[in-house]
Design a protein around this nucleic acid. Structure first.
Lengths: 357, 357
DNA sequence: ACTGAAAATGTGTACGTACACATTTTTAAA
DNA sequence: TTTAAAAATGTGTACGTACACATTTTCAGT
């Protein structure tokens, strides 16, 4: 079913049908109704190929995300973004990646300035530096540039979509995995391992969720919670880590609400007493964590499909800019429970689903 | 970069470039080399829109899968297949669904005959009736029709791809969830709930994996395994179920290696003793199972992303027929661990990822 | 050098849509 | 009725590719 056929059925020209389809007006009411009826009855769907050919626009997306070293968390969302670019480039979606230093607001502002000069058709923003990110969203709104938030949300920012995880629920899940099965009484250590002083809302929400689970389920009657912050940038972090979880006290579990759990795992390997007595739960399937999950030092990892997050952020723009669909406001990805027995298929999941080499 | 531009650079006509691109011959060697060099240098990629427009082929895929009532397992792969059809119809992929009765080889053979008469460009086959499925694959090979296997595999069948799960690993995972945390000694019941007498390899593999985990981990020293088959088609199934898991004996856990675990869960609700004492683990996120997971009767469900399986089976044909890519031979989907705390985001996962209303 | 066939190269059209522009019809005022 | 503006409708071209067909060039055999 083509525009031509519809025109013939309605006894009008292509142009009239076209005006109806695009609501350009200049069509008499009766004609319009007749054409719309035919379109509906015939279940007309525009030919994507012809439309793409004639429009032939290239849409420029800029993603502004934290820089990373190989194996660090932000490599994963980036993989997803790049995979999407590969699949969508044939439809005219082009990508520029801008990476900023998570510890430097100045770095972010520089990149944000660069971004605005590129006048992109869409922006993917990781608002890890909260205050500066808000400033950028306001400029984007003023310039009428649609943007997607990834990883963490800025409520009422006017974003097209937020794509990420429910951090509170992630914390609850961690608590369940760490505590619900052990009938033991004892101490649970929550260790926030950080690389910098940035105020990270995600970590905080995970910890809140973790505690919420314990209080709600009454497990708190048997369990003592000890919280500590370890800043890797400080010299005494190894010493502080030792204090935070000592195998000789009654610590039965450790929760590290970030991908940096492997630092604690490394510490555990130094004394076999640790991982035989203490259960360790953390977040994210980065190579270092996978290593310790495989060897049994880490009991569970909670995944949030970061590659899929990146992929969806891009696909959102495809849906919005090309298919003219309004995306959902929030997309929470599933919280995957990863353990030795199901690790393998998560490991290869991403290339599987998105058809990469 | 278009064919036109390449032609101009090479000082030849469009036709000559076209002949080189499609290896139609009738081009002098020196011209061909010159053009190929330019194509390579310019990194020419054909315009998908123009190509799709001019080829304008429709590819006809037939999926032959078990029939189902609302809420039954096979509804989920079907959802994935239909979602893919919706997204891919714009590229000329059309679908016919043929549903057969799982309990009737005759029903399958009728549908298989119908399928061959349709002379499709691709087939999605759920080989749940093993022997008849093999016969069909041979006819498909003879007719040179590519096919994908879904849910369970037929080794060396000549399929384009197998898309499914690792049933053995699924069983191991179930055992870990059911036994590893409980320090208790006791009896574990493996209950194969079945609707028919079909020999189902998947159930068997799950049970093998389950036992393998117990034996390998030495948990078997404290645990007794009791296996039983419950055929829902027989009148005495309720009585048999009561015998299989009695709260008054030392049963500490029940594993039902299929989506029919909700029958056991229903039985559990009749006596609060059951679900306070016995941990129940089963497979698949069908509505009935979700209900009991939410209410706490079922402790864990293991998911295998059936919708994604269906979607991928279709996408495979898009990749193969339109993008001319060779798909991977086997695609094992991740084994998701679902519990009360992460159920919610799995529940909405599918519409999330595949962008459905 | 001339011929005819083979080899090489060029040309034209179709695919379905979007949009600019041209033409026809209707309407209201003189 | 005539007329000009407004409203409605029609026409033509471009997008990049694939493929059928037309034309030109090359070259062996006379």
């Amino acid at each position: 079913m083509t525009i031509k056929e519809i025109a013939k059925l309605a006894n009008v020209s292509l142009g009239t049908v076209d005006r109806v389809l695009h609501k350009r007006g200049k069509v008499s009411k009766e004609t319009e109704e007749r054409i719309l009826a035919i379109i509906k009855k015939a279940n007309y769907k525009p030919n994507m190929y012809a439309r793409g050919l004639v429009l032939n626009k290239t849409y420029h997306i800029v993603a502004i995300i934290p820089s990373f070293k190989a194996g660090e968390y932000w490599e994963m969302p980036t993989q997803g973004i790049l995979a999407a670019e590969k699949n969508l480039s044939q439809f005219g979606i082009k990508l520029t990646l801008l990476k900023f230093d998570q510890n430097s607001a100045t770095s972010f502002e520089e990149k944000a300035k660069e971004l605005l000069e590129l006048k992109p058709d869409g922006v993917i923003l990781a608002p890890v530096i909260n205050f500066e990110a808000v400033k950028l969203t306001e400029k984007l709104k003023a310039a009428n540039i649609p943007f997607n938030l990834i990883d963490s949300n800025l409520p009422d920012s006017g974003a097209l979509s937020f794509i990420g995880q429910d951090a509170f629920q992630s914390g609850k899940l961690a608590a369940k995995l760490l505590c619900s099965e052990t009938q033991k009484k004892g101490t649970i250590a929550i260790i926030s391992v950080k690389k910098n002083e940035n105020h990270n809302k995600t970590l905080q929400r995970r910890i809140e969720g973790f505690k919420d689970y314990l209080y709600t389920s009454k497990l708190i009657n048997d369990i003592t919670i000890v919280e500590s912050n370890i800043h890797l940038s400080k010299n005494d972090w190894k010493k502080r880590l030792k204090e935070a979880c000592n195998p000789n006290n009654d610590t039965i579990g450790v929760f590290v609400p970030s991908s940096l759990v492997h630092y604690v795992a490394l510490h555990f390997t130094e004394d076999p007493q640790y991982f035989s007595k203490i259960k360790l739960v953390g977040n994210d399937l980065i190579p270092n964590n996978i290593k310790y999950l495989r060897s049994g030092v880490i009991s569970y990892l909670i995944g949030q499909r970061p590659q899929t997050q990146g992929y969806l952020a891009m696909q959102n723009f495809y849906n919005h800019l090309i298919l003219k669909q309004t995306p959902e406001e929030k997309r929470f990805l599933p919280l995957d429970i990863i353990t030795q027995e199901n690790l393998i298929y998560y490991d290869i999941e991403f290339s599987n689903i998105f058809n990469l080499a």
